[in-house]
């Protein structure tokens, strides 16, 4: 059996590829790019919510938000570790992110304007992330699939705390409910964009499906998310900002309107409301933390030579 035949047989048998196995160069490259983007998304994703930590309305909510942001950092670290099993250095990935050569999910290029956004992000953004990540637990690359299992467990907390936050707002004053509606109005469409272009405009999907990196297509995942979310919006008494949204009895799914693809591509290309701020902040944090990394290294060297 050639290494390639072995690889194909493992993938066909729904078994996992592990770091020491032979793999096609395209498989390795696709995974490095995807896992790195995923890791970057978690790390950049700390910023929109970090924005509200000091202004959380209670100590309880503040503690929840800090735990959630800490989880995002943890998720980023699991994922960078998974990427490193493919023979890439973490600092290389940081450099590509800082230079704008690596992307992260466009959702984090939107600003968080009100406290209700903390609810909308948990409910919609983490809800969309779960839809994708549950699929990725079945990914053919072992380290990525394992990282997803851990992450999915924690994302459930993220989504539930967000939805619960919105329940509170929707049962509160008129202004609080209006704030929740405003957050839904702003986050709905960007959340649907998180699933990426239509399958017909997604050139890599077919190969990724063949390699079992990706198990479900962008449009199918988006449909799953819409079907799951609409009843949740109804429960909150909030209106989804899509006049074309309606139940299609024949399909057994919700029909929904077309995404503004011009906006989508504009944000992907770096022209979203927050693209520049996010990278500037990330780069600054990296540079300002340099002395901590250097001091830790110096301390470790000194302890070793003293021993």
């Amino acid at each position: 059996m050639t290494p390639e035949e072995r690889f194909d047989a493992i993938v066909a048998a729904e078994d996992k590829i592990e770091p020491s196995d032979w793999m096609p160069e395209g498989y390795r490259k696709t995974l490095i790019r995807q896992i790195a983007q995923h890791a970057h998304s978690e790390i950049i994703g700390m910023q929109p919510e970090g924005n509200w930590i000091t202004r959380a309305p209670s100590l309880h909510r503040k503690a929840i938000l800090m735990a959630k942001v800490q989880d995002e950092a943890g998720h980023g670290l699991y994922l960078y570790s998974a990427a490193e099993t493919l023979g890439v250095e973490r600092d290389q990935l940081q450099q590509l992110l800082h230079e704008g050569k690596h992307k992260y999910s466009s959702i984090f290029n939107y600003p968080t304007l009100s406290w209700a956004d903390m609810g909308a992000i948990g409910w919609l953004v983490d809800g969309a992330a779960i839809t994708n990540q549950v699929m990725l637990t079945r990914c053919s690359y072992g380290p990525y699939a394992r990282a997803m299992v851990r992450i999915c467990k924690e994302e459930s907390f993220h989504q539930r705390q967000g939805y619960e936050l919105l329940i509170r707002l929707c049962n509160g004053s008129e202004q609080q409910k209006a704030m929740a509606q405003d957050a839904l109005d702003r986050w709905w469409w960007p959340s649907l964009m998180m699933f990426g272009p239509h399958d017909t405009d997604s050139p890599h999907t077919e190969q990724s499906m063949e390699w079992k990196i990706k198990r479900v297509s962008n449009d199918e995942l988006r449909q799953q998310f819409v079907d799951m979310t609409v009843p949740q919006a109804d429960y909150l008494g909030l209106r989804i900002p899509d006049p074309e949204l309606r139940w299609n009895k024949r399909r057994g799914h919700y029909d929904f309107g077309e995404i503004d693809w011009e906006e989508f591509w504009n944000v992907v290309k770096g022209n979203g409301p927050m693209n520049r701020d996010r990278i500037a902040h990330k780069t600054r944090a990296w540079e300002e933390g340099a002395w901590v990394r250097e001091a830790a290294t110096a301390h470790a060297d000194k302890s070793r030579s003293a021993a």
Binding site: Q34, V125, N132, M194, F195, L221
Partner: peptide
């Protein structure tokens, strides 16, 4: 959500 962000 896809982390396979399209090439830009």
């Amino acid at each position: 959500m896809t982390y396979d962000v399209p090439i830009a």
